[in-house]
Simulated assay, not measured.
Amino acid sequence: MPADSRPYQLTAPRSVLGGAFVYDETLTGPVPESAEEDFAAFGITNPTPVRILYKSSSSASRQTVQLTGAWGTISDPEQVIDRHFAKIAQNSAAEPNGSTKLVGTLQTMHPSGLGDAMMKCQNIRTGANQYIITTPICVWADHYTYGEVLVLDPGALRNGGLGVSFGENADTAARIRNDARVPR
């Protein structure tokens, strides 16, 4: 167990990153019915799923941030992350013409403020035809919370489809973890 043995839960705050991103009810859909089962298969005991999408509070930016995760008990945070990425790869392989694929290699990240959590990121390519975006997906896990953060920037289409950098997405994920993770 971690040095800080207090249990934590994952919440869905109305805003994150000091108000830079705010809850977007038009983009946030329900948590999929299979979420608890999926999180349990990753290695989270008694998972409580969380899913929320945020939009930039600045009218000059069209960026969105997606937080998908769960809280419960996690005995092996790294294993949970690895199983998550393996599931994405498995789903991509099952749909050879699918619109979402992992590309590049999985990288362990150590952004400031991550605390006792483990984080890994990998690029994900999504879209179709001329609307393909490649951006990192970052996943953290500690002994109580798990979160996947994806920053989508429609402006990336003007930059050859490349979204935010690994470092920027990892930093955003660590900061969102700190905003959304609270003691039980």
Results as ranks from 00 to 15, higher is better:
151 V>I: 07
13 P>N: 04
149 V>L: 12
81 I>G: 11
93 A>P: 09
79 Q>V: 10
87 K>H: 08
136 P>Y: 03
168 E>R: 15
171 D>I: 10
71 W>R: 14
31 V>F: 03
176 I>N: 03
39 F>K: 01
114 L>H: 04
4 D>H: 06
46 N>T: 09
65 V>S: 12
52 I>C: 02
6 R>E: 09
133 I>V: 12
107 Q>G: 00
100 T>H: 02
59 S>H: 12
46 N>M: 06
89 A>Q: 14
172 T>E: 15
112 S>E: 12
70 A>F: 04
3 A>P: 05
78 E>C: 09
173 A>N: 13
15 S>R: 05
141 A>K: 00
136 P>I: 05
66 Q>A: 11
69 G>M: 09
128 A>Q: 04
16 V>T: 04
12 A>T: 04
64 T>C: 12
30 P>T: 00
125 R>Y: 01
56 S>R: 09
117 A>F: 04
1 M>A: 07
27 L>S: 04
81 I>F: 06
124 I>R: 07
78 E>V: 10
87 K>F: 01
146 Y>S: 05
45 T>L: 00
135 T>M: 07
52 I>A: 07
150 L>W: 08
100 T>D: 14
51 R>A: 13
8 Y>N: 07
27 L>D: 05
23 Y>N: 08
125 R>F: 04
52 I>L: 08
87 K>M: 14
132 I>L: 15
